[in-house]
Nucleic acid binder design. Structure first.
Length: 178
DNA sequence: GCCAACGTTGGC
DNA sequence: GCCAACGTTGGC
């Protein structure tokens, strides 16, 4: 090992890993009932973008607020549908912000305990990227060995926002013809 | 529409 | 802090 190696190494590390290095994309699955707001509704929205609000589960909130990053990939899943399954791909737009519905007494998502100075619930904006060429029904997700660990195929799974691994992301897209 | 699986609420 | 009751989710 040459003299001065440590200093050289420190310098290269600075160059190869600058403080502003882009973050690795993460992947998620969100559930929505197509009778309420399906992937087609998202694609037809202004800018193909909508506010993802009304999440009232703390675990899902943490994924939404702290896990998601702008640009992350999102699998758009239709729940309570015939059949249920993944309909399209979306992306995370911008940063998390306080969910305004928690402060709105007229909203079904109103939370009387929530304080504007310290919001309880958070929202994100999601933008439709592409419908799957082939809808991927839940039965197909369950039959795919690579997807056995996905939250959505687990019995009794109710979380409306769940993480997806890069491998799962690629496999669902492949099954969907993207 | 049924009902299993969860999460939350509230009495104690 | 326990836990029964209740409400909701979501597959089927």
């Amino acid at each position: 090992m040459p003299p001065g190696f440590g200093r050289y190494d420190a310098t290269t590390t600075m160059i190869l890993r600058p403080p502003m290095a882009p973050k690795k994309p993460r992947y998620w699955l969100v559930k929505s009932e197509p009778d309420v707001f399906g992937f087609a509704d998202l694609a037809a929205a202004p800018g193909a973008t909508t506010r993802w609000d009304g999440v009232r589960n703390h675990q899902a909130k943490l994924f939404l607020r702290d896990g998601m990053q702008a640009g992350d990939g999102v699998l758009y899943y239709h729940s309570n549908a015939d059949p249920s399954g993944v309909a399209g791909v979306a992306e995370v737009v911008g940063d998390a912000y306080a969910d305004p519905t928690q402060f709105d007494p007229a909203s079904p998502y109103f939370d009387p305990k929530a304080k504007p100075a310290a919001p309880t619930w958070f929202a994100r904006d999601l933008r439709a990227v592409a419908a799957l060429s082939r809808f991927v029904p839940l039965a197909q997700l369950k039959a795919a060995g690579k997807l056995a660990s996905m939250a959505v195929v687990q019995r009794g799974s109710r979380l409306s926002v769940t993480p997806v691994t890069p491998l799962e992301w690629r496999e669902v897209r492949r099954l969907g013809g993207l």
